Amino acid sequence: MGLCDARVVAVTGAGRGLGRAHARAFAAEGARVVVNDLGVGLDGRPDADSPAARVVEEIREAGGEAVAHGGDVATEEGAAALVRTALDAFGRLDTLVNNAGFLRDRMLVNLGEDDFDAVVRVHLKGHFLPLRHAVAHWRAEAKAGRPVAARVINTTSGAGLLGSVGQGNYAAAKAGIVGLTLVAAAETARYGVQVNAIAPAARTRMTERTFADLAALPEDVSPLVVWLGSTASAGVTGRVFEAEGGRLTVMEGWRPGPTATSPTRWTPGEAGEAALGLLAASEPPLPVYGT
């Protein structure tokens, strides 16, 4: 018996790298998988290769069940079709793994509006739209009295948690995914949905240039994703995990630190003096990647 027997899982950006590893790992644990990939290059531009069908074939050759979906999940039509593909092929959807993305790295002074918008679109909007369509389905199921034990795993990054030099667009999008995860977890719990995020570190097409020394493999991240996508993770929601090689970390986000109060409105000088005192009493931030 696999951890995900009878579950149906949709994985976006599953043609290569992390997404491919997740899709194969879910299938190995008994899940039926919708393999989404638009088949684009590292920068999001059209690529002659279409990898989703190849991953489906790999899963089937290993004895699993899978179908391909080649739509753009950063569009209403593509995101809706992703959910519809799962329902048409397998009759249900239990887990959504949002993973699709690409890079257009530039220092801020060289980062054009088009490159900023494109990266935010595929990462942040490409998480929001599949999430919204999946939740709409699960809400309808819950309101119809059918039990729901749904799971969403979003993909953030250390760049979104700490920042990363040369990746202002990517870091902004990945930070937005954390906020989206927290809101979605709070709003959807009533329907039987759990929403978490992972910040993976693994050697893929997207990381091999920026982090050439990174040795961890995508397959090292997938076990946690499979567990979060299963019913075994009951009660775990609204959390962010970092995964690299054999190391797993629960990330702790913003929370109130040292505080100062005044019975009257601060003057600028008083506010500055108070702020310096608070900074002296606080923990220093972790360094931004690339510094």
Rank of each mutant, 00 (worst) to 15 (best):
118 A>K: 13
19 G>D: 04
85 T>L: 07
155 T>N: 03
101 G>P: 11
164 S>G: 03
275 A>H: 12
255 R>K: 14
291 T>W: 10
264 T>K: 12
191 Y>I: 02
228 L>H: 02
42 L>A: 14
186 A>Q: 15
152 V>T: 00
287 P>F: 06
21 A>K: 02
132 R>Y: 09
185 A>F: 00
110 N>S: 15
40 V>M: 13
105 D>W: 06
1 M>I: 13
279 L>R: 11
195 V>K: 01
198 I>C: 07
96 L>K: 03
22 H>F: 15
147 P>A: 08
146 R>Q: 07
128 F>I: 00
151 R>T: 04
130 P>L: 05
14 A>S: 13
50 S>K: 15
65 E>G: 08
22 H>I: 08
113 E>F: 11
136 A>W: 00
192 G>S: 03
221 V>Y: 10
257 G>I: 10
171 A>P: 07
156 T>F: 07
49 D>L: 12
133 H>L: 05
64 G>M: 04
205 R>L: 14
173 A>D: 07
226 V>S: 03
120 V>P: 11
214 L>C: 05
234 A>H: 11
68 A>P: 09
83 V>R: 02
11 V>A: 11
26 F>N: 01
136 A>H: 05
111 L>C: 10
169 N>Y: 05
16 R>H: 12
185 A>M: 03
145 G>S: 06
14 A>W: 06
235 G>D: 06
233 S>P: 08
127 H>L: 07
207 T>F: 11
63 G>I: 01
240 V>C: 08
222 S>P: 10
96 L>S: 01
114 D>V: 13
14 A>C: 12
42 L>I: 15
99 N>Y: 05
28 A>Q: 15
55 V>I: 08
132 R>I: 01
58 E>L: 08
169 N>K: 02
26 F>S: 03
114 D>E: 15
263 P>N: 08
244 E>G: 06
213 D>C: 03
109 V>L: 15
121 R>D: 14
57 E>N: 11
288 V>G: 05
